[in-house]
């Protein structure tokens, strides 16, 4: 049995921790509502640009364009999107493990572009070649960051610095379900669109205006930019969602612990009083 002073001290420390988790819960939930607003606004574009690109691939018999021609799979680049901070449940762990297991299956050189400090530290520790130019994009994803990222990645691809480009991010399926995903961005392949359904089936070749090359030169960078922006937004929203849930659980656990300790404290206090009374009674009895 602990003494009352010790129990009181423990209750106080748990209360302080609870204040922190409660505050983090509130911060995460306000960030989440902002992130969800962005997500909802972006969701339509994200889905639409993917189904449009798929539609184009399906209806174009053969595409002879640098973004479509496979180059082998010797040098792979990964864009891995995780968080800047921990304390968000399994969010970072899930996305990083997904990335790692995919990377480990790859034979040949690997270059990793990381978003978020947790991702950088994780891959540095594992001894990978890490490029942290995009580290800043984890907080507050916006269109400018995405544009810089897309431009740099496309430049690197065009200058033949990589054979393949993958993106690893957390896909927001619903507010309660987020799953990490690996998608091949370059070269553009039909297999990357397996989860995209076409709105309408028709059999006809598409006309390109003014020319297939001119259209694809613009379309693919826009597709990458749209994808990266969407992936940043969804990852950020998933992170806030995960943190909110983790902090909510932590706060509840703290409440439970405080309640339990409070009972223990009351028992200990009562034991002390009982003890004192019996001592006094003993003293009185001895006097008589």
């Amino acid at each position: 049995m602990y003494s009352t002073v010790e129990i009181k001290r423990r209750i106080r420390t748990i209360r302080q921790t609870r204040q922190i988790t409660k505050a983090m819960y509130l911060i995460a939930s306000s960030k989440l509502s902002r992130a969800m607003e962005k997500y909802r606004a972006n969701h339509v574009y994200f889905e639409k640009i993917r189904s449009t690109v798929k539609d184009i691939i399906v209806h174009s018999p053969e595409i002879d364009h640098p973004f479509f021609v496979p180059r082998g799979n010797e040098r792979a680049s990964y864009l891995v999107i995780a968080g800047n901070k921990g304390l968000c449940g399994a969010y970072n762990h899930n996305v990083l493990q997904t990335a790692l297991s995919h990377i480990q299956q790859h034979r040949g050189s690997v270059n990793i572009f990381v978003v978020g400090q947790v991702a950088r530290d994780f891959f540095k520790r594992k001894g990978y070649n890490v490029n942290d130019d995009f580290l800043y994009a984890a907080e507050n994803p916006n269109f400018h960051y995405s544009r810089d990222m897309a431009e740099q990645l496309i430049d690197a691809y065009s200058q033949n610095e990589m054979d393949e480009l993958y993106i690893v991010y957390t896909h927001m399926e619903s507010t309660v379900k987020q799953t990490p995903k690996v998608i091949k961005l370059l070269p553009v392949e039909l297999s990357a669109f397996r989860d995209v359904s076409l709105d309408v089936e028709y059999r006809a070749d598409i006309l390109y205006h003014p020319s297939p090359k001119a259209v694809l030169d613009l379309l693919i960078p826009k597709y990458l930019l749209g994808f990266i922006y969407g992936a940043l937004i969804q990852s950020f929203a998933s992170e806030q969602q995960a943190r909110m849930m983790a902090m909510d659980t932590a706060t509840k656990n703290a409440d439970d612990m405080i309640a339990e300790l409070q009972i223990k404290y009351n028992q200990a206090r009562q034991a002390v009083i009982t003890n004192e009374i019996s001592e006094i009674m003993g003293g009185v009895a001895a006097l008589e």
Binding site: A204, I206, L207, V215
Partner: peptide, 10 residues
């Protein structure tokens, strides 16, 4: 206008 042939344009 309605009935245009399928096309992708810049």
């Amino acid at each position: 206008i309605k009935g245009h042939v399928p096309m992708v344009a810049l």
